[in-house]
């Protein structure tokens, strides 16, 4: 699968996932213009990636999320739509400072980092999200997918396989 499609899928999930307000891949967000090698060059392809919104349930920020954080998520969504991932990152960090125990926020930030090709950071954030997830299997599975993808891109094939095993176990 081409990397452009992969980015499109990720962006859409981030965009949709913030508020859970859209379904399917109806409006492809603009590319951020960064070139990326085709996934065929990857040493190992993780099943279930890219995170495709029509295959996975959308991660919502939770009913307890405060209006302050929802406002930031709304802005982060707009920033992602316009391809401004750095602004999205700043807004998500502000949201996490307000609600550090909200696992969905860590998950969103992990996805932004994945899009920015900051794989180690993406995996760390996804693991933090898992540590806070309190039995939310869908969220855990999506976080393990991020970890698997990040490890894969870092050339850690065994680590990616192990992460994928977690995804499979959570199905």
């Amino acid at each position: 699968m081409g990397s452009g499609v992969m980015r499109t899928g990720l962006s859409c999930l981030i965009v949709c996932g913030f508020l859970g307000g859209c379904t399917g891949v109806s409006t492809p967000p603009p590319s951020n213009g960064v070139g990326e090698p085709a996934s065929t060059e990857l040493p190992f392809t993780v099943p279930g990636l890219p995170l495709d919104s029509d295959k996975t349930k959308l991660i919502t920020p939770g009913s307890q999320t405060s209006p302050a954080v929802l406002k930031l998520l709304d802005q982060a969504r707009a920033a992602t739509l316009s391809g401004d991932l750095q602004r999205a990152e700043v807004l998500l960090e502000r949201a996490i400072r307000i609600e550090p125990g909200n696992p969905a926020l860590w998950h969103y930030l992990a996805k932004v980092r994945l899009q920015q090709d900051r794989f180690n950071e993406a995996a760390g954030l996804a693991q933090k999200s898992n540590a806070l997830s309190k039995g939310d299997k869908q969220l855990q599975a999506d976080n393990w997918r991020i970890i698997a993808h990040a490890r894969n891109r870092n050339g850690d094939i065994a680590g990616a396989r192990e992460a994928q095993d977690h995804v499979d176990a959570l199905k």
Partner: peptide, 12 residues
């Protein structure tokens, strides 16, 4: 204008 950010980073 932004020069450098020190982002949130966590490692397990």
């Amino acid at each position: 204008e932004p020069l450098r950010r020190y982002p949130i980073e966590v490692q397990k």
